[in-house]
Design a protein around this nucleic acid. Structure first.
Length: 912
RNA sequence: GCCCUGAUGGCGGAAUUGGUAGACGCGCUGGACUCAAAAUCCAGUGGCCUUUAAAGCCGUGCGGGUUCGAUUCCCGCUUGGGGCACCA
């Protein structure tokens, strides 16, 4: 009876689907466990062997937790809105819905072959109106909320309105509020809403015809498509993520995430604690106080000039009449640069004198005000005090424009470079003289506050998220515009606001978003918003929707939310560290503030699976010929390296005939062989079609089966590490499954007996149980599989075919190789799926040996061994060692100083 | 420049977190079965010295240190990968 993985796997996949084996519902009698994969964007290329890595890991964990008695929520869905489908639509006219649908079908087919235990009844798609209804709903809630800094949480905007009405708030008095028109009131509230519309400097991508968020831009190019991005002022919908910066940073502490990922988020949020200080300024005789931000208030005595960002609103009022032309010219030049050029020229110093002066609030000194692009409008106040002696950017600027440099720290040399370090003793600094820098920073802050010159301030680098995209394939905004231009939310009853049909997916000829092509895109006679929401809108709260995916009354019912709460284990790639994982946390905190969810963090534990890279193969063609030389001989010739399809290579040996057939121009290829074979070179590269190194999981399932694929992906190495795929080693795990099969069957059939197991056999089993429990919780799946191989090897050697051993073994294996486990479980006489079994109890006694053979070392050198009870105390050990003296096995000389016993391992005797 | 993170045989990787380094798998070598091949099974496999064996020496990127004992801890480098980058 052979191990026929093909029929076994299709049989069980069909049965799981038909019987809905993995369907879950809230069950108060059981503890819950929520295991989530980052849902995929269904691209046209389908899955390669690297994609399922995280899914397999989470599936193993889900199945394991189920065996342990947890009620496991393990869903899957699709992040289906997005640029590639729309770009494809622009080129072909094919509706994105059609391509998306097709890609999803293909993904599903591939996923199903691997045997995941998803509850497919909970599948979601972000492009489904029943789903994006709740994305739109969340947007409306954010529109209807503001961030109350006193309570440090989001509150209904109506509370702010009543404050305006009664006492006034910030710069809006009750009188002004009452006198304001509807339009004015709308504008004032817009400054406070969590989802708001406002003019801001955006990343505009001409190639995609849309704005992008900061995390969608890398090195001045769009992440999708690689088009150049420029800075542009535009009015856009935004989310007030910055209001949550402090909380997003602080609650990182309690999350079970890797340090590197937390660190990435910390950098992205970028807290810096400093001081806001007011400087008076003079421009053409007019006085104007301006505020700057600094983390080095202690260097106030070294301020020799001030700098404004070119985009700062202060530029206009602080430019002297006689400098207008020059300043204007500079600002135009800065504006013209693309983001990429700005990055490329990072170290070139540019700037222009504004013709105005600032007054140092401590020394009263008059200092010039400059304008330079090294100061950013979006951070702090867009204006700085420059201390060239102790800031390298100010230093470079001062050197270039011949501005004075005043050192403030004893003994520092600023003739070649600035002294940025925060250590040393202050000098030239009035009341700060003699202090260390760290003392001086605090003293200066106190001084500034005591003298009313400013206040302590914490700034964050995290910006508000730009939430509009000038694209078609995304969620429409449930917002229309009144004749005075006031954005007005649609009533909840209007949701979902469905995407309209349009005839072309391109922007309109006058540069308007594609939705402007829609006929009658209005609500109640008012025009609707024409931009759509970005990709992260749909993916920010999807984990909540899985808890209650068919609910038409709420994003998630209170009961479902309070049962499932949040994700216990989240597995996905690091690429979402500063995008999705920030937005999701923000979104969740907002919903928490407003009382719709009961946990303030969405993902308790997060694991980043490593990337699986491709292993490419090369052949070496002699330059100008069609002759190929084997790897070992190539250095004797002048060759070019050519990627060769890895399907034509086995163990780095080239299939010569296959190669000749591969491409017409290689049909008459000649070879220079070594030892009769052509050896190919190899390299680890990204898995991609152009490098002919893509391995498709379907092919592996055909050749070896899904269980082998699952085991092999996990056996490859630690989950979190990136590693190259190399199909070469897969035979090892395939052999393991065949051996396992042989424990249960022989040529004729089922051979499991009811004989009583021996202690040796029980020991093998229980050691495995112990090992598996230990390793699974720490995600060391590769060592668990090693333990399986050892156990199966030992049971084979013991010729053990006993139910009492093999039944638990089958359960232990089922998370890893579920299909074969189900088949064996059925042969063992069980009617129900093995996933309803319970993880076998671990009997500690079977791993404890009464006597242990200890190697005895003297000063680290091994001398002899001694048999002792495992629990022996150091005194007993010492006595035993001394006993060796009597039996003549004593090899050491001198006095025993110390006896070190490592339980079950070793005895070390320190001799003097 | 700053911050993470890794470096162990021919290869992927283990090592109970300070205790016999190289588990397990791949590959390779030899053997058994076979007319033969595949499959399967058995044995060997870090390096050096040695006819062989025993024994020994060297070995976890490099250089120091702590310790009876270091892949593991500390200090200083080299190097691969990732992230941030005029953030005042």
């Amino acid at each position: 009876m052979d191990y026929d993985f093909k029929s076994i796997e299709s049989k069980w996949q069909a049965r799981w689907a038909a019987e809905k084996t993995f369907r879950v519902s809230e069950d108060p009698a059981k503890p819950k466990y929520y295991v989530l994969d980052m849902f995929p964007y269904p691209s046209g290329a389908g899955l390669h062997v690297g994609h399922p890595l995280g899914y397999i890991a989470s599936d193993i964990f889900s199945r394991y937790k189920r065996l342990k008695g947890f009620n496991v929520l393990h869903p899957m869905g699709y992040d289906a809105f997005g640029l590639p489908a729309e770009q494809y639509a622009i080129q072909t006219g094919q509706h994105p819905e059609v391509t998306t649908e097709r890609n999803i079908a293909r993904y599903r087919e591939q996923l199903d072959r691997i045997g995941f235990s998803y509850d497919w009844d909970r599948e979601i798609r972000t492009c489904d109106p029943g789903y994006y209804k709740w994305t739109q709903w969340a947007f409306l809630q954010m529109f209807d909320s503001w961030y109350d800094p006193d309570l440090d949480k989001a509150r209904p905007i109506s509370e702010l309105v009543s404050r305006f009405e009664t006492t006034g708030y910030e710069d809006v008095s009750a009188e002004r509020w009452k006198a304001a028109s509807e339009k004015e009131k709308s504008d004032i509230l817009m400054r406070y809403r969590i989802a708001y519309q406002g003019e801001t400097s955006v990343n505009w991508c001409e190639g995609l015809g849309t704005v992008l968020a900061n995390d969608e831009v890398k090195d001045g190019l769009s992440v999708r498509g690689g088009f150049p991005v420029e800075q542009k002022k535009m009015t856009q919908w935004q989310l007030r993520v910055s209001a949550y910066a402090g909380r997003l940073l602080d609650s990182l502490e309690k999350l079970d995430w890797t340090d590197s990922l937390k660190e990435m988020q910390r950098n992205w949020i970028g807290r810096s604690e400093g001081t806001e200080m007011v400087f008076n300024t003079v421009c053409d005789g007019r006085e104007l106080p301006i505020t700057i931000f600094t983390t080095r208030a202690d260097t106030i005595y070294g301020v020799t000039f001030m700098v404004l960002a070119p985009e700062s609103e202060l530029v206009e009022s602080l430019t002297a009449a006689d400098r207008k032309a020059e300043v204007e010219q500079y600002i135009q030049a800065v504006k013209k640069k693309t983001e990429r050029e700005r990055i490329a020229e990072t170290r070139t110093v540019t700037g222009v004198f504004a013709g105005s002066y600032g007054i140092n609030p401590v020394t009263g000194e008059k200092i010039p005000i400059w304008i330079s692009e090294y100061v950013l409008a979006g951070y702090g106040t867009g204006a700085i005090m420059a201390v060239p002696a102790h800031d390298s950017r100010d230093y470079a600027f001062a050197k270039k424009f011949g501005l004075p440099i005043v050192p403030l720290i004893e003994g520092c040399d600023v003739s070649q470079e600035s002294f940025d370090a925060k250590d040393g003793i202050m000098c030239n600094s009035g009341f700060l003289n003699g202090m260390t820098v760290k003392q001086a920073i605090e003293a200066a802050k106190d001084y500034v506050e005591a003298h009313g010159l400013g206040r302590r301030k914490t700034n964050y680098r995290l910006r508000d998220a730009i939430f509009s995209r000038q694209r078609y394939w995304g969620e429409p905004f449930p917002v229309c515009y009144k004749p005075d231009g006031t954005p007005t939310p649609l009533p909840l009853s209007a949701l979902p606001l469905r995407l309209p049909e349009i005839d072309s997916f391109k922007p309109s000829p006058d540069g308007q978003p594609p939705l402007s092509r829609a006929k009658d895109w209005t609500w109640d006679g008012y025009p609707l918003e024409k931009s759509t929401m970005p990709g992260f809108a749909g993916s920010s709260a999807y984990y909540l929707r899985y808890m209650d995916p068919h609910n038409d009354e709420a994003l998630v019912s209170r009961e479902a939310d309070e049962y499932w709460r949040n994700v216990d284990l989240y597995i996905g790639g690091t690429e979402h560290a500063t995008g999705h994982l920030i937005y999701s946390r923000f979104w969740n905190k907002f919903l928490y503030d407003r009382g719709w969810v009961c946990e303030d963090e969405p993902f308790r534990k997060l694991i980043n699976q490593g990337m699986i890279q491709g292993r490419s193969n090369f052949v070496y063609r002699l330059v100008g010929t069609n002759t190929f030389v084997s790897l070992g001989l190539k250095d004797k010739y002048e060759t070019t390296e050519i990627h060769v399809d890895i399907n034509l290579v086995h163990n780095d040996r080239l299939d010569l005939e296959g190669f000749r057939r591969w491409r017409p121009d290689f049909a008459d290829a000649e070879f220079i062989l070594e030892d009769g074979e052509y050896i190919c070179g190899w390299a680890v590269e990204k898995m991609s079609k152009s490098m002919y190194n893509v391995v498709n999981p379907d092919d592996i399932c055909d050749r070896y089966g899904a269980d082998t694929l699952r085991l092999y992906e996990m056996f490859l190495g630690p989950l979190e590490q990136s590693k190259p795929w190399d199909t070469k080693g897969i035979d090892g795990v395939a052999r393991f499954l065949k051996k396992l099969w042989r424990l249960y069957t022989d040529r004729e059939g089922f051979i499991v007996t009811d004989d009583k197991p021996t202690p040796a056999e029980l020991k093998v089993l229980h050691r495995l149980i112990g090992k598996e429990q230990e390793d699974i919780e720490s995600f060391s799946y590769n060592t668990t599989i090693s333990a399986f191989m050892i156990a199966v090897g030992e049971l084979t050697a013991l010729n053990c075919h006993k139910r009492e051993i093999l039944e638990p073994l089958c359960v232990l294996l089922s998370p890893f190789a579920p299909h074969i486990a189900e088949e064996l479980w059925e042969m063992l006489g069980h009617a129900e799926s093995v996933s309803f079994a319970r993880f076998p109890e671990y009997v500690a006694a079977w791993t404890v040996e009464d006597n242990v053979t200890y190697p005895v070392q003297f000063n680290g050198k091994m001398r002899f061994t001694v048999d002792l009870p495992k629990s022996a105390s150091p005194a007993e050990v010492e006595a035993a060692v001394r006993g060796m003296e009597q039996t003549g096995r004593w090899v050491g000389a001198g006095q025993i100083v110390k006896v070190v016993v490592v339980p079950g391992r070793i005895i070390n005797i320190v001799v003097k």
